[in-house]
Design a protein around this nucleic acid. Structure first.
Lengths: 131, 131
DNA sequence: CTGGATCCGCGCGGATACTG
DNA sequence: CAGTATCCGCGCGGATCCAG
């Protein structure tokens, strides 16, 4: 079974939000779901769409999503091989809150940047009074 | 500055959902926000409420949340020291989608467990036909 | 009580090469 | 095209000790 696909998921505690993170909280899975939101995609399409992902990690992410019932994998008996991934009904149920979080991220970005700057400068000044 | 509090956050790509994960996608931050959802809490209260968290990670998580403007830290000049943490208005805006995700996690749990089981057995049988 | 400092293991994830 | 196999660095996070 190569690389243990039970990696991210399985047991956590019993905090629901932790369960969600266990499902899509790794580096690429959430973005995969986003890409699949516009309809089924082939492996290479995903690879190109998701900037910076390696084939290895894309495969692992897709395997996990598939194992947890969030993504389906259908192999078309063509040559060259042709595999399509798609989201399941389970994912539809979280599309909306996920969109809400995305929208919030965009809206809050300036405030967050400012908060970071404020925090950082607030912690630097006491160290180097002048300079 | 000790341990680089820029750990999780800062630059990612430009996928909004990745930004959210960068903010609260680490092991404990989301759960901290959940605990603070019922009102301000002291450090030790959080430590006890969040099963399995170490003082170190709780501190780091709180520092990150504070730095990104999601949590406030107020020190009451008492002896022994008394520090209270609370969520900011920024967090209020995502309480609802976060709740939605939590609710979904609870609802979907059986389906996910079943999907895992189906996937696992489906992958084991071809290996050991009998046994 | 509320942390900070240090040490360290382990697993995520990147790079690369190989395959049906 | 759609993966798999192997190697490996690095950073997350746990354990422990110390401090105001």
């Amino acid at each position: 079974m190569s690389q243990r696909n039970t990696a991210v998921t399985d047991q956590v505690t019993d905090c629901p939000i932790r369960e969600v993170l266990a499902l899509i909280g790794d580096k690429w899975s959430a973005q995969v779901l986003v890409e699949l939101g516009d309809g089924p995609r082939r492996f290479t399409q995903l690879e190109r769409a998701i900037e910076g992902v390696s084939r290895r990690m894309l495969t692992l992410s897709l395997r996990n999503l598939e194992r947890n019932g969030l993504v389906t994998r259908t192999v078309h008996p063509d040559s060259p091989p042709r595999v399509e991934y798609a989201t399941t009904a389970l994912v539809e149920e979280i599309r909306e809150p996920l969109e809400a979080l995305s929208a919030w991220a965009r809206r809050a970005a300036p405030a967050i940047t400012e908060a970071r700057h404020a925090y950082d400068t607030r912690r630097e000044e006491p160290v180097t009074p002048r300079a």
